[in-house]
């Protein structure tokens, strides 16, 4: 495993986090950290433990071992410095709720007591909608939005309370390639402009390659952390998986395939070769 020592000013730091469930170990000594403005991909196949890591970071799941520090402090359940966009949000199209209402609920949706409407609030909601290019459908019912539109509104909902860390659970899973690319570009822009650390989980890293600063690669509950070039290599991933896997780079795309896969014998191996895509760079 490639280690990741704590850096000063880290937004998030996990150390030796282990989680068991039903007698099965889900996470095994997971550790990594995120700096402000950093765009990190949480990459792994289905069931590798990505969602579990996100739930631990959110404080919805207490790890059996290890520490989670947000801004250098232990995790509290109600943490306004962490914004989260779940993978699947189903909203009833019959619910009378506009996109702007949902974004406004991001501001103080958890607070009890009446709120006084103010120009400042409204302005903030409008700014946020503008930042995610959602002004066009601000007054549409949330339940009637398309997948890409809803994703933008959810990002605005998560970001309006000015978190320092944004967690995205598989935002690209239900989107077509173009909408997915737009979301990725939007997130990269926001991370850079607002100095927010973005942790985005995905099973395919290719759409993220141009923007990803670092990768947290998950397999079997363990992680390898570093830049794409450091981590996505045959030796590193083979060690992580515990069996032979091959990393192929074709036309700027990265493929991770199991070494025992028969049909791959015909494909020339390029493992260890420098990245074909110049935009994949370290920090």
């Amino acid at each position: 495993m490639i280690g990741d020592e704590m850096r000063r000013g880290d937004v998030l730091a996990l150390e030796g986090v282990s989680v068991w469930r039903g007698g099965r170990q889900i996470l095994d000594e997971v550790g990594f950290s995120l700096a402000p403005g950093e765009f990190t991909g949480l990459i792994g196949s289905n069931g590798a433990g990505k969602t579990t890591i996100l739930r631990v970071v959110m404080g919805l799941l207490a790890p059996a071992e290890g520490t989670v520090l947000v801004n250098g402090r232990p995790l509290a359940r109600r943490n306004r410095s962490v914004g989260y966009v779940p993978q699947k949000v189903l909203i009833d199209p019959d619910a009378p709720l506009r996109a702007s209402d949902l974004v406004a609920l991001g501001l103080d949706g958890e607070k009890v007591g009446p709120r006084t409407p103010s120009r400042q609030r409204r302005q903030r909601v409008e700014e946020m909608l503008d930042a995610v290019d959602a002004t066009a459908f601000a007054d549409a019912r949330v339940g009637n939005l398309s997948g890409g539109e809803l994703q933008r509104v959810l990002i605005a909902h998560a970001l309006i309370s000015r978190p320092q860390l944004l967690l995205m659970d598989e935002p690209l899973a239900n989107l077509d390639i173009r909408s997915g690319q737009e979301i990725v570009d939007l997130l990269a822009r926001i991370a850079e402009q607002q100095r927010i650390a973005v942790l985005l989980s995905a099973h395919d890293m290719n759409p993220l390659l141009p923007v990803m600063d670092r990768v947290v690669y998950v397999a079997g509950g363990r992680v390898a952390v570093g830049t794409t070039d450091d981590v996505v290599r045959t030796e590193v991933l083979s060690k992580l998986y515990g069996h032979q896997v091959n990393v192929l780079r074709v036309d700027g795309r990265v493929l991770v395939v199991s070494g025992s896969h028969v049909s791959l014998d015909a494909i020339p191996r390029q493992s260890g070769a420098p990245a074909a895509d110049a935009s994949v760079e370290g920090r």
Binding site: V19, R21, N46, T51, L60, L61, A62, P63
Partner: peptide
């Protein structure tokens, strides 16, 4: 077991 705080089942990926 890593006890969930909420008591909700872990969403399967």
């Amino acid at each position: 077991a890593g006890a969930p705080v909420t008591g909700q089942p872990l969403p399967t990926v």
